[in-house]
């Protein structure tokens, strides 16, 4: 029944930072934060009020006109994408046997992660809740065009 674990052929040296350990720790720190961020996101967007029925441009404008929800969604964006990408990396490491395949998949994952974080961050901070020239009936009630 006992399992013999071979001695690693190349023992870990303490010369460089242990990135796997930091990754492991990040998952356990970001996890509980994401529970608070995402569970609240689900309650506010899908449970309260009219739930999914109420979600449109004006709904998003109403939230992002408030810096509180801008920061909330920004934290959710960064933490969820890094947490998700690191989880996918773990799965790739488990199943991709060839080094080339593993590197290609891992590089793709982090590239997509960086791109979406950049896109999302720009969207949150350059968002105009009352864009000029938009038809008034699509805008939130606080817009001057209304």
């Amino acid at each position: 029944m006992s399992v013999t674990i071979e001695t690693p052929s190349r023992p870990r040296t303490r010369k460089q930072a242990n990135w796997e350990k930091y990754g492991w720790l990040f998952m356990r720190v970001s996890g509980p934060l994401l529970i608070v961020l995402i569970f609240t996101h689900l309650v506010v967007n899908l449970v309260l009020g009219d739930g999914i029925k109420a979600i449109d441009f004006a709904f998003v404008a109403g939230k992002w006109a408030d810096p509180f929800w801008q920061v909330w969604d920004l934290a959710m964006l960064w933490l969820a994408l890094i947490h998700g990408t690191n989880g996918m990396r773990t799965i790739v490491n488990d199943y991709a046997g060839q080094v080339k395949v593993r590197r290609a998949l891992t590089t793709t994952l982090w590239a997509v992660c960086a791109l979406l974080i950049l896109l999302g961050t720009l969207v949150i901070f350059t968002f105009d809740p009352c864009p000029a020239g938009a038809s008034a009936e699509l805008l939130a009630s606080f817009c001057p065009a209304q």
């Binding site: 449109d56 441009f57 998003v60 964006l77 979406l116 999302g120 969207v123 038809s135 805008l139």
Partner: peptide, 18 residues
Amino acid sequence: LLVHVLDTALVRVSPEAY
């Protein structure tokens, strides 16, 4: 999550698109 970030990014395109 990948899809959701992209669909939400449409608010930056136009109210109609979103």
